[in-house]
Design a protein around this nucleic acid. Structure first.
Lengths: 150, 150
DNA sequence: CCTTGACTTAAAGTTAACTTTAAGGATTAT
DNA sequence: ATAATCCTTAAAGTTAACTTTAAGTCAAGG
């Protein structure tokens, strides 16, 4: 019989509202979660670990439905090991793509910081507009039609 | 008189729905956007550049309201240069924090991939549960009360 | 004994960021 | 010239992920 915790304790410890934990339970995010005779949820360490992985999956950009796919696999036990392996490799691939895109975004922010550092020093945007080009940082936009349409 | 583009051309070129471009206009994201006598929007290169920066700010996690703050500064011209400088430095700081957190998340995903690679090879999760610990990758959880509350 | 506070449920409400609809005017293709 | 395709507006609808509300149970403290 391992130690268990009430929803309030878990809420405080992980800094997640109780309402959210109940919502997760309703979505079957915690397939092993037990309840007392009077209906009180009893979280054990495995449940808490699952919640922490769910937080991680959310940070990785997964939707509720995608997380449900995962927790359903959890409920299937060892039979779903290969599926879970594939699942995480896929998530990781997508996540690395997202990280790469964010590096690009950081480059733009770096550029804009340098741009406004110079503009503020100049007291005007006019000079810097001539001399600093965003296209040095991001790929040029897809071609627009060259005719004036209006 | 520089070349201008219709909303449809911009929509196609930047792969943003026309409805979204109109929505942005309604929110005053494009302070310099002109309209023809008959009310047709005429996007010029500066407007397009602004849209691309807005896309970047969205990727950086800014809300519509925060983007509105920025476009309002744009409308103020050189008078807002110092504000815009601060704005971008702040955005950049927050963004770097987010990137750092994502590196952490990647570490968890790496762990989970290795975990399930081994589990799938073993054919069971039992072994790997004993031998691989997530806490090697993420800081231990904040302490939970040690008494069993139920 | 009765109040306080944590817990329960189902269901309605919230927020952000679009997206669609309805009703109609202007431009382009055949 | 006339149908198709763009454009306009204001307003209502959508979706995700919670969050709040209403109504009620239950155990412990003064």
């Amino acid at each position: 019989m391992s130690t268990t915790y009430t929803i309030g304790q878990v809420s405080t410890a992980l800094n997640i509202p109780s309402s959210t934990l109940r919502y997760y339970d309703k979505l079957h995010f915690l397939p092993h979660l037990k309840k007392s005779a009077s209906g009180i949820r009893q979280f054990d360490q495995a449940d808490i670990d699952t919640i922490r992985i769910i937080e991680c999956l959310k940070l990785a950009g997964l939707s509720i439905k995608e997380i449900q796919q995962f927790t359903q696999m959890l409920a299937e036990g060892d039979a779903s090991l290969a599926k879970r392996q594939q699942f995480f490799h896929q998530i990781r691939q997508n996540f690395i793509q997202k990280l790469t895109q964010m590096q690009q975004t950081l480059a733009v922010l770096d550029f804009k910081c340098a741009y406004y550092d110079q503009a503020a020093a100049d007291g005007t945007e006019a000079l810097v507009q001539k001399n600093m080009s965003l296209s040095s940082v991001i790929p040029d936009q897809p071609a627009l039609p060259t005719n004036s349409p209006v």
